[in-house]
């Protein structure tokens, strides 16, 4: 478990993602795919094809993802600048979140049930 190698590989795929993002944007000026998302995709491909063994990134990557909240504390602290606008609208925002959450939930339940039904029919109702 060489931590330097692990940090290096994670940063490498992050940079790969940023480069790919810039390339895509250069070729298709209206397509902005975030570099981080592309980096995630590239790392997923490298790991699942075993080009990059999982142990080369596992400890550092798991440390980052399982302590995610720590890394967005700086982004959250900035909220004091917007206290006025937030407190003026907080009830409306809460209402929106509540409505949106319930509608998302119902839509997910309906769509997944429908999908499972279609899949089951295709397989002749023999298995799930």
């Amino acid at each position: 478990m060489n931590l330097f190698r692990q940090i290096f590989f994670i940063l490498l795929f992050y940079v790969f993602g940023e480069i790919l993002s810039a390339l895509v944007l250069a070729i298709f000026p209206s397509v902005y795919l975030p570099g981080t998302i592309l980096g995630l995709g590239l790392l997923l491909v490298a790991l699942s094809t075993k080009i990059l063994p999982k142990k080369e990134v596992e400890s550092v990557g798991t440390f980052l993802t399982s302590n995610m909240a720590f890394f967005f504390i700086p982004a959250a602290v900035g909220v004091i600048e917007y206290f006025d606008i937030l407190s003026a609208q907080i009830l409306k925002i809460l209402a929106l979140i509540l409505i949106s959450t319930i509608l998302s939930f119902l839509a997910i339940v309906a769509s997944v049930k429908l999908t499972l039904g279609i899949l089951r029919k295709r397989e002749g109702g023999t298995s799930e």
Binding site: I10, F13, L47, E58, T65, F71
Partner: peptide, 28 residues
């Protein structure tokens, strides 16, 4: 606030690599 946020930029920097690392729980 802006001074503090500048001081904390070292933490913020890890958000990008963190997103990339979300591939790890997925591959498992």
């Amino acid at each position: 606030l802006s001074d503090l946020l500048t001081d904390l930029s070292g933490i913020h920097v890890f958000l990008g690599p963190l997103i990339v690392s979300l591939a790890i729980p997925i591959v498992g």
